[in-house]
Amino acid sequence: MSGERYRNSFLREVEHNVEEGHWVKMCMQCGVCSGSCPFGPHWAHPPQELFMMIRAGKREEVLGSDAMWMCTSCYNCVVRCPRKLPITHIMHGLANYAHRLGLAPKNQPTRQFAKMFWDNLSKTGRVNELKLSLGLYFKDGFKQGIRNALAMKDIGLGMLKAKRLNPLELVKPHACKGAKDIHAILAKAKEIEDRRKGLSA
């Protein structure tokens, strides 16, 4: 288990394994970032608090939290932080790490969507907007999917009419010729990253 090596220091674990995690110790707890999040009221622990909890070694509470999944990647915090922490990326990094370790909340909707998005784009190298929206509607089963799709049908038809959605995406999607190359590149990149973080299976 990857946490083992760092049993005594969650901060060290974050520094080593979380994207831009080495910045965490630079936080001076001013709270500016916490006042900057568009979904602020919905954060169980705003960024400043997450950084404090990391230093206090609260591993399970941090990685199991759905707080960082509220990040909209608006970069408000980044341009305001007096210590210039790349807060957005640390939020992404924490979420990714928790997801990889299987500690992130199971039915967190942004976690589900982010996974669908990545799986969608990495298949052909380009996002298939139709399959992505259909997948999103149907993620909670067929019946709910039909209900969701019907609720959005006027919008879908409007997009179709405006030529901003292509029904043929289902059978003949936008795709990269080098899709195989992309698969190879991504597999290699993941392998290198896992090796560096000691996450290899």
């Binding site: 992404h92 979420a95 990714n96 990545w118 990253e193």
Partner: peptide, 15 residues
Amino acid sequence: NCCGASIGYAEGGEL
């Protein structure tokens, strides 16, 4: 190819 967008982070990771 796709840039990965910000939301690609959860599954995509950094590298």
